[in-house]
């Protein structure tokens, strides 16, 4: 947890602040900036995960349109399975949520466009859902929290037969328990 905090804190001061904290094991839990804290340990701003009501369920953020956690879809290029850089913040936010909420469970449904064999497309969708699952677990989510499955070409988000439409169908949808 501490090491992770270092990573998430500002890069420039990470080493120094880590060293300090390790010498003071009783120091406060690694939360973000507090009012009145010395300017030197201020790091980049981190958007709060919850809307902010004390005692509110962290799961509320999943449905808050203002939270990145309400975004659930990762799109892929044709015949590609790597998570594009533009989706990295989204996946990181969900990894953090899963980390901080060990009871949370996620189903990732991978999808393919309609061209070709239905069963081979199940395989392509599986590759995509496992790509996001792998990134989530590398970022600290537990393997048991996530199930990666494929819907192949069976559940298109867009029904027309065009590249524009196919691009919307090559996707992963991340769903939490209770949402599927």
């Amino acid at each position: 947890m501490r090491a992770m905090f270092c990573v998430l804190s500002a890069a420039s001061l990470a080493l120094a602040s880590c060293a300090t904290e390790e010498q003071k094991p009783a120091a406060q839990a690694p939360v973000e900036t507090k009012p009145g804290a010395p300017q030197a340990v201020q790091t980049q701003p981190v958007k709060p995960v919850t809307p902010g009501k004390p005692g509110a369920s962290p799961f509320a953020a999943l449905k808050d349109p203002g939270s990145i956690l309400s975004k659930r879809t990762v799109y892929f290029d044709f015949d590609k399975f790597d998570v594009k850089p533009e989706y990295r913040p989204l996946v990181e936010a969900h990894a953090k949520f899963l980390r901080e909420n060990p009871s949370a469970k996620m189903l990732i449904q991978g999808n393919a466009d309609e061209r070709g064999s239905r069963e081979y497309n199940v395989g392509l969708g599986q590759r995509r859902s496992e790509a996001v699952k792998k990134m989530l677990t590398l970022l600290g989510a537990r393997e048991e929290q996530i199930e990666a499955v494929s819907l192949g070409e069976e559940k298109p988000a867009c029904a027309e037969h065009s590249e524009e439409c196919w691009a919307k169908n090559r996707r992963d949808d991340m769903l939490y328990s209770g949402e599927y």
Binding site: Q109, V122, V149, S150, L151, G152, Y180
Partner: peptide, 9 residues
């Protein structure tokens, strides 16, 4: 056969 009734194959 394969059914997706459980949101997965």
């Amino acid at each position: 056969y394969v059914s997706f009734e459980n949101k997965k194959p």
